[in-house]
Computed example of a mutant assay.
Amino acid sequence: MKSLLLTFAVLLFSLNQPALAQTASANPQYSYFTLTPDITTNYITQGKKLGYLRLQVDLMVADPDYLPLVEHHAPLIRDAVIQIIGEQPESKIKSLAGREAIRQLCLDRVNDLLIAETNQKLLTELLFTKYLYQ
Score class of each variant (00 low, 15 high):
Y30G: 05
Y30R: 05
S31D: 00
Y32K: 02
F33E: 07
F33D: 03
T34E: 12
L35N: 04
L35Y: 06
T36Q: 15
T36L: 14
T36F: 07
P37G: 11
I39C: 06
I39M: 07
T40S: 12
T40V: 08
T41V: 06
T41K: 04
T41M: 11
T41D: 09
N42R: 09
N42I: 11
Y43V: 09
I44R: 10
T45Y: 06
Q46I: 14
G47H: 04
K48G: 13
K49V: 09
K49M: 11
G51I: 02
G51N: 02
G51M: 02
Y52K: 09
L53K: 03
L53D: 01
L53Y: 01
L53S: 05
L55T: 08
L55P: 09
Q56A: 10
V57N: 03
V57A: 08
D58Y: 03
D58P: 01
L59W: 09
L59G: 06
L59F: 12
M60P: 00
M60G: 04
V61T: 14
D63Q: 08
D63P: 05
D63E: 12
P64F: 05
P64N: 05
Y66M: 12
Y66A: 01
P68N: 10
P68D: 13
P68R: 08
V70E: 04
V70C: 07
V70S: 00
V70R: 03
V70P: 00
V70K: 07
E71M: 12
E71V: 09
H72C: 05
H72I: 12
H73F: 12
H73E: 14
A74T: 05
P75F: 10
L76Q: 11
L76K: 06
I77P: 06
R78K: 11
R78T: 10
D79T: 12
D79C: 03
D79K: 09
D79Y: 12
D79F: 12
D79Q: 14
A80R: 08
V81M: 02
V81T: 07
I82T: 08
I82M: 15
Q83P: 04
Q83D: 15
Q83V: 14
I84C: 07
I84L: 15
I85F: 02
G86C: 09
G86F: 14
E87K: 14
E87F: 13
E87H: 13
Q88L: 02
Q88I: 08
P89F: 07
E90K: 10
E90N: 13
S91N: 13
K92W: 01
K92Y: 02
I93R: 01
I93M: 03
K94V: 03
K94Y: 01
